[in-house]
Design a protein around this nucleic acid. Sequence first.
DNA 1: CCCAGCTGATACCGCAGCGGTATCAGCAGG
DNA 2: CCTGCTGATACCGCTGCGGTATCAGCTGGG
Lengths: 284, 284
Amino acid sequence: MRYFVAVAEELHFGRAAERLQMAQPPLSRAIQQLERRLGVQLLNRDRRGVSLTAAGKTFLEEARRALDAVDAAVRRTRRAAMAKPTLVLTTKAGASHELLKRLLDAYAARPGAVEIDVLLCEIGEQRQLLLNGRADVAIMHAPFDLMTGLESVEILTEGQVAILPASHPLAKRSSLTMAEVSNVPDLPIARWPRHDFTYPPGPGPEVRSQSQLAQLVALGRTLLVIPASSRAWQWPEHVAVPVTDAPLATTLLAWPAGIKSPALTGLIETAKQLAEQFKEQVAA
Amino acid sequence: MRYFVAVAEELHFGRAAERLQMAQPPLSRAIQQLERRLGVQLLNRDRRGVSLTAAGKTFLEEARRALDAVDAAVRRTRRAAMAKPTLVLTTKAGASHELLKRLLDAYAARPGAVEIDVLLCEIGEQRQLLLNGRADVAIMHAPFDLMTGLESVEILTEGQVAILPASHPLAKRSSLTMAEVSNVPDLPIARWPRHDFTYPPGPGPEVRSQSQLAQLVALGRTLLVIPASSRAWQWPEHVAVPVTDAPLATTLLAWPAGIKSPALTGLIETAKQLAEQFKEQVAA
DNA sequence: CCCAGCTGATACCGCAGCGGTATCAGCAGG
DNA sequence: CCTGCTGATACCGCTGCGGTATCAGCTGGG
């Protein structure tokens, strides 16, 4: 399966073999054998390269899932065997600083709380980290993150703010609308890489991380719209302005469906209590 | 992993080896090697048998998940390669006859509908069938079925009825309460097997299938409480009486999280339309 | 038109690793 | 103390994986 995923991603036996640190002929044979055992043609070998059949596309998805499950099994078992149980929490670097701190503090105060390692990641990586067992639990944002295969509890629902360069005229406004922040000619929305690491076309700068984005805003090159609680990482050159009609953003605590350690149950409980506190704050 | 799951389930190397159709010594070595590679002790070998460590319990769960994922990959790929695409729908034998028929008829009327194979199963098996790729989609019942790792749409929410032997005094009533149907001395609730095939203690008869249960009701040995739409399989000797304070039962169309074939999308769409129809019926 | 260069496939080889049989070692019960 | 049960160890043979060398089909350039 690992071999097939490599070939399907590279669409080239030679490069795939290189990535797998092996020679090309055994790789070719392994894939042939896989196709024979499945009784299914996965690849079209035309002159000039390789392409996936419909069944191949299915198998690529499924194989990724299965490999993740095996990885997760190994990692979770190793971690379960450690003398000191710990919980790995992953969150987008820089997002929801205040909220994360409150969650961690409240959890640490519980009797029987275990140590929590925080694993910072880039946008959109949390789901992958949960599914392959590198993390136990994540802070994510609906409706922006894909929650498929995860369970979650809501912590906080809130409006969004636009983060603008302080020098820009829009930064002086007390509120904005989506129509006003979309299509600002001198502040085009940044472009994030797709799954295959290529970028969609468009006028905005190409970015790979939050910190790049933060710097580009400070330089007056772009703007962004994020949940209000995520603006902890504002720079001095940044100004946050509420966007009144932006979709509501919900911060969630999420974990892989069906994984329930006692430590995780405690953290979920804490998150629910925190959610109650936030709701009361809003009501008051 | 297959080896470990066998040993963990049997808690006995000899029997596990037999189940795996191999000799005991290579199995012992394979497990040792697995433990060495993981760097984790999975089993306690006491004199007199084997028991799981905490890490072993984790690995058992995770290994089952991973093996399911591999199975699912193989099966789904094989089915994706078939000339005629089909959808396998699984449902508890005898449940929601009328509703199933309406769903299938409505779907078949759609343009581009594919053939749907119906795979009947026993209570609680649907989740497993979805996760290991034997089925694509299931009809399930909240809050009775475990939905972890599945996505779903609601089709119908309804009250529950008690299925009673016609000869029993309670059968003459026009409605009942949970208090009245729990603890009827001569109609004790049937007991279903646990995951390890043992039965919980109690006075009720042991059953393994809906049809056994149906017969036991007809014989005047037990009663059961089920969603109103599931009573299609009533026998002549059965009487259905509404239970006014039973929890509402929701019939759902469910599929493995993250699996989305075009055919499945069509069926989900059909289910949503059907749900609308039911809602209107209730409103009228 | 032919050849260089790219692709993936085939031929053959050597060794690692798996599963087999035979046997051992610890322990419980008669 | 011996028997019978457990899982572990010793040793062996073969399957199968990955390696190198080479082939075969197609493409594009001179």
